[in-house]
């Protein structure tokens, strides 16, 4: 940090200039919000460089710089399902200068004996979503979700599905699916999304439950076929694929990425950051990069995002406990 004093002062100058010119638009929030970003902001990515989470952070950072007038420095702190980065953030000063990207695991890691709880963080905004889907091999005998459910009812535990790893975002909807449909399936965890989807495309397992966008390559290539979208309405690009709810299982689930700060960050700082994130995610360049990655760009402000995380935590808890009790 020390070696950046030069950069910092340069950034401060820049920030001062920007504040002077952009005061009118920013001062509306009141409560000293116009004071906040005077130093560089550190944005930690709790995943390895190069993934879609990393990419979204690096796309967003320059846009946030434009909004906030200070440098936003992206840093990768990967490890242990993201918990290394999350844990690091928890221990930082809640001053708004140390932020982290987050995914759905923040709400679920606690159920896997990690010391990560949503209560330790202040959520700033959701920036993208990846709606889930259930897909089978192209020549699979299952034509509808109901076919799959019937087959699973006829032979409990015989139908297998691949997941990107234990404790992944997609274990939860898989568990929810079994609950809602009253069936029993066998989970075959793989090491990441790509191998798990490829396993379904090769027929090593009966179906894949993952982000629709991640499955898209195999669907376009004629290897996989969507059975159901786990969203509240059909997806524009695939109007023929029904939602799960249409087929009698009211299951909706999406992976998501957002930003957060340590708990205890002052409300006005949270508000400033939230506004900046909303503005940055409405940028066209950002939206096109995210869409190219087969994800859905969204602009959800702090308040709404916090409620959403709480809802996810409540929804997932029982499913995870259930999954744990069934393993063996």
């Amino acid at each position: 940090m020390k070696q950046r004093t030069l950069m910092t002062s340069a950034a401060t100058l820049a920030a001062a200039g920007l504040l002077l010119s952009g005061c009118a638009s920013n001062s509306g929030g009141g409560g000293g919000g116009d004071e906040f970003p005077t130093e560089d902001i550190r944005l930690v990515v709790p995943w390895a460089a190069g993934g879609s989470g990393d990419l979204s952070a690096r796309t967003l950072a320059p846009l946030l710089e434009d909004e906030l007038g200070v440098s936003v420095i992206v840093e990768n702190r990967p490890g242990a399902n993201g918990s290394v980065g999350y844990n690091w953030l928890k221990e930082q000063e809640p001053d708004g200068y140390n932020l982290s990207m987050l995914g759905a695991e923040v709400a679920t890691l606690q159920f896997m004996d990690y010391d990560i709880k949503p209560a330790d963080y202040a959520f700033l905004g959701k920036i993208l979503e990846g709606p889930g889907a259930i897909a089978v091999k192209a020549d699979s005998p299952y034509e509808t979700l109901q076919d799959l459910i019937d087959a699973a009812k006829a032979a409990p535990g015989e139908i297998t599905y691949s997941s990107p790893g234990v404790g992944s975002v997609w274990d939860n909807p898989a568990q929810g699916f079994q609950e809602m449909a009253g069936i029993e399936l066998t989970n075959v965890p793989y090491d990441g999304s790509a191998p798990s989807i490829a396993a379904a495309a090769a027929g090593d397992v009966d179906f894949s439950i993952d982000a629709m966008g991640s499955q898209k390559a195999q669907v376009d290539g004629g290897e996989l076929r969507y059975l159901a979208v786990l969203a509240d309405e059909r997806v524009e690009e695939f109007p023929d694929v029904p939602t799960a709810a249409e087929q009698g299982v009211d299951l909706q689930n999406a992976s998501f990425t957002g930003l957060m700060a340590p708990a205890g960050t002052p409300d006005d700082v949270v508000q400033t950051l939230s506004d900046a994130i909303v503005a940055a995610t409405e940028d066209e360049d950002y939206q096109s990069v995210i869409e190219q990655s087969n994800l859905v760009p969204v602009s959800v402000p702090a308040g709404e995002f916090t409620e959403f995380i709480q809802a996810e935590e409540e929804r997932y808890g029982p499913w995870i406990e259930l999954a744990k009790s069934k393993q063996g």
């Binding site: 390895a48 460089a49 190069g50 993934g51 879609s52 990393d54 990419l55 790509a194 495309a201 898209k216 390559a217 195999q218 376009d220 290539g221 004629g222 290897e223 990069v289 190219q292 990655s293 087969n294």
Partner: peptide, 23 residues
């Protein structure tokens, strides 16, 4: 991805509108 470099490459290619996959 055949290895970790390729995993990173896939991400970039998708942004360029090149979708690695059977098609």
């Amino acid at each position: 991805p055949g290895d970790s470099v390729m995993a990173v490459l896939i991400g970039s290619m998708m942004i360029w509108g090149i979708q690695p996959g059977p098609a």
